[in-house]
Amino acid sequence: MAQQKDVTISVLKFNPRDKESHPKFVEYTLQETPGMTLFIALNKIRQEMDPDLAFDFVCRAGICGSCGMVVNGKPTLACRTLVANYPDRKLQLIPMPAFELIKDLSVNTGKWMDSMSNRVESWIVDNEKEIDITKIEEKMEPKVAEDIFELDRCVECGICVASCGTALMRPNFVGAVGLNRVARFQMDPRDKRTDEDFYDLVGDDDGIFGCMSLLACEDHCPKNLPLQNKIAYMRRKLVSVK
């Protein structure tokens, strides 16, 4: 077992709702324990040093997408971040940009994602076809189901948005996450939308034409989604609409 080292975690603290509060880095030093993740470290800090420190975790297993934050300059899921992966045991944490700051490391991804979901109509559009659920389901080619699943794995963590140059300049940009949702429904035979319909949703600079192909989204996506590939594909499709 690795010998126990001191870990230094520096957090950008700020409460925008408190007039007295100004953004400042606060440093905490604690002892590393085996397998220590940022989930473990931050909870320890809250319980033993700073009960006021705000951050968001739910599943603590890299599944729910709650805990995106910027660690030493890279947006990532904090619960899957092992302290041991940083040889000098110094971690600087700041909240993800592009989202409304709630407090310290807690940002409002929920609000952003809801508005994205409504914008791209992130659901099956089947023109109100009533299906009879007492009957055998419609068949689907196994490979098609697999391919849809591949894109459906997005957890809406917002890391692609926080990594994205366009999103930082254009607050209304739907982000890789939104374009991935469009690509997901575009390939789903249950969805009756045409390319023209998708064009109406994202055929502008806040959508598919805003992407500058900087690749940071794909580099940072914790689910390793093929974002660039899908965005390029959607762009080709939608260019031909006009």
Binding site: I131, I136, A145
Partner: peptide, 18 residues
């Protein structure tokens, strides 16, 4: 069974029989 078929219509990409 009705629930799963409804979810299928709502977009869940259930793994299929090969």
């Amino acid at each position: 069974p009705k629930a799963i078929r409804e979810l299928s219509a709502w977009g869940v990409p259930w793994t299929r029989v090969q």
